[in-house]
Nucleic acid binder design. Sequence first.
RNA 1: GCCGGGAUGGCGGAACUGGUAGACGCACUGGACUCAAAAUCCAGCGUUGGCAACAACGUGCCGGUUCGAUUCCGGCUCCCGGCACCA
Length: 897
Amino acid sequence: MQQQYPYQEIEQQSQAFWEANNSFVAQQTSNKPKYYCLSMFPYPSGKLHMGHVRNYTIGDVLSRYHHMKGFNVLQPMGWDAFGLPAENAAIQNNVPPAQWTFDNIAYMRKQLKSLGFAIDWSRELATCQPEYYKWNQWLFLRMLEKGIAYKKTQVVNWDPVDQTVLANEQVIDGRGWRTGALVEKREIPGYYFNITGYAQQLLDDLDKLPGWPERVKTMQANWIGKSTGVRFAFTHDIKDNNGALIDDGKLWVFTTRADTIMGVTFCAVAAEHPLATLAAQNNPELQAFIDKCKQGSVMEADMATMEKEGMDTGLFVTHPLTGEQVPVWVGNYVLMTYGEGAVMAVPAHDERDFGFAKKYNLPIKQVIEAGELKEAKSGIKSNNFSEKGIEQLNKAISDNQFTTSRWQVWYEEKNGNCINSGKYNGLKYEAAVDAIAADLKAKGLGDKQVNWRLRDWGVSRQRYWGCPIPIIHCDSCGDVPVPDDQLPVKLPEDCVPDGSGNPLNKLESFVNCTCPRCGKSAKRETDTMDTFVDSSWYYARYASGFSNEAMVDAQTNYWMPVDQYIGGIEHAILHLLYSRFWSKVMRDLGLVNYDEPFANLLTQGMVLNHIFSRRTDKGGIEYFAPEEVELIHDEHGKTIGAKALKDGLPVDFQGMGTMSKSKRNGVDPQALIEQYGADTARFFMMFAAPPEQTLEWSDSGVEGSHRFLRRVWNLGYLLSGIEKADLPNKLTGNLAASRREVHSTLKQAGIDLSRQQFNTVASAAMKMLNALEKVQKEAEPHWQAVAHEGFSKLLRLLSPIAPHITQSLWKTLGYGEDILKAPWPEALASAMVQDEVEYVVQVNGKLRGSITLSKSMEKSQIEAIAVNQPFVQKHLENASVRKIIVVPNKLINIVVG
RNA sequence: GCCGGGAUGGCGGAACUGGUAGACGCACUGGACUCAAAAUCCAGCGUUGGCAACAACGUGCCGGUUCGAUUCCGGCUCCCGGCACCA
């Protein structure tokens, strides 16, 4: 008999129960181990999307699981509430960003609650609250005192659409990360954080993060981009128009291959280099080339394939060791923004230099013995030895084992003796670099140096809806920090931006102030901070009491570091790197005692859905929502086409992509909750794919999940009328088998849950239900006891994923009041013992049959029985048994020949 | 080019340290119930041949180790993500 599954009622009741019992309010206690589970907080854009649902369900499953495992769990939630969309919405709707933001927060909070997340709402925060951003300002001032924050005027990335500065990290392929507009270069004064001062630590401490995905660590290491080498100068007496020596007569370069310094045959400088600028003054041809280079750099897409081009400046510099005159060229492959904007060129041992020298007929001088080996293997990038590379190389050498021919070549070159190098002849890589660096140092013309790809973090934004930078500009005193007792500098919340620049500039009540130092009238800084500042420490604030007297308190060190952080891979570099940096700054200021904020990181995959489209007559693309399309199957169930419902004409059905409005393939979580309930939404999300992989949306998959929960409800309803009896001492037959199935499935599910493979946990729950339904239907003696035992385990296993239905049934069936407080279900070994075991029998590794044998049987006996099976004898007609392999309780392989 | 990850039925995906490949679900096919449909329940479902029992083949490709390989080793191909003229 079918019961309906009243999910709405169930979910409301369960949520009311949690609310009334403050079930998720975390206390700082010492008798349990702590577990801080954090999902990246959302930007309050209006309403939740499926990515949020997936992210927060993963976090919730982990939180509830650890609750039941006896951990003291903290799972907070908040709002990354500053940012541009609020301003854009304000311009469109004539509403102050604050109001828009708070309205969105209210709606989204309601949505999160309707999904039943075990969140400690007492710790909710929004980064746009003065009580929060006060501490951005406070820490900013401390960083200013320490020199970690500083002001400089620099060429910056300017987003012409958002009218603001972008950090390097926010420029993707020459375009703004949010607007997609082509980024311009502008000179603007602003504040910077000296993140490069922490580069070494940020790199080294990646090794302290075994719980992070390898790819995220690699991405960060690449981004930090350490390279070790020698910085040295060629000397010259080239003067500018005023007769002053350019750069004090030194052309500085950086190289990782100082061992090849004796092979320098020319130098190449960037188009923006002062020497290039000077040489171009009387050389229109060179000027034209330089202009072309500068222009070209905008077209990022062509960079990779761009031909190496250059032009002679006619200038010469002096080699610091040989004293030779070396020609200076302008090269389009030299970057002004990396190193010194100039390079030494050794065509014999660097691929790019080689190509350049060949093209312009410049001399090539071999100075390393094994040079010809390189030429034999073209395409070998010999110009950089990354640290990781050298490490691997050394390992390969010591193991005397080369995994690829490439390592062989690197090894040969690195171990080649210097030749044609005067006093350095016979030295190998490291010795040569040491000797050369020492000689350069003695001459005052160079030394070993480490170069970083990472730049300092520019945090000034010419925007309204952000945290004000606490600085006052005084004509007499200059830039004066706002005193601590005047913090926070509150952002006026009633401004409505009109789209032309920063409205704070026009707000006299904000701008006009008095200088805290001399008391004269002064102007307040109107730039606000990059919103990545806000998100760089919110996790520490959650963990702390919300004191107005301190940024964080002692509680922080109890909860931190975050035990499990969950969020999208798109934050692999920006947010995670900034947060790590910020933590180290807070540590150095004595505020916290941890080095790294996030012990374990889970990067969840994106949520994809089908894209149905059709080319229109006009050459455009028309998109169809999934409900506007009907799929066409063949008799095997294979999808062979799709047609639009409105006209019956075919549409393309093979596309798959992230949910978006423009592609018309979005699914609204709210509609899903209303139609199927939160438990179904959560269950499907966990079941459809492992958490790190992309998840392909499927309406029929959602229905399948709903069907499963309805069956759970039905069995629960049925069992609610059946008395709970004790299990007999010994079960037999089908009942014993079903119980074994329940327990062994549970055992595997426990393992899967601990390694965060939630999809197989969900399928384990399904398997357990299948077994229990069988128990119920067969109704052998004692089935009631087996069903109740199994069902109570099923409910607890399922409860982190589908908390409402399980809480409701837990109570209805009289198992307990609060399933969250129930002990985690463990599989019983006694339920899994077997007297008889099914052995698979193979002949020469091929499956030929199976036999059921007593578990206590001797090996020799097993072998004899197996060989006598007819399906084995068949294969012995023209052959004899050579060997028999018995894997206990599993498999017998008879080798014949 | 470098770094990281991946490739398993019609689809999403299982298979812990080498041991029954395809768990679980979806789709599809047939049946039961129904006046009928939906829902539900039962059965089937890798490919090829065969009425069937069964046999052969099968985890991107080529080769190796092993009694036995989706799993380990060597060499490729393709796909996804990140970085990229980094000196």
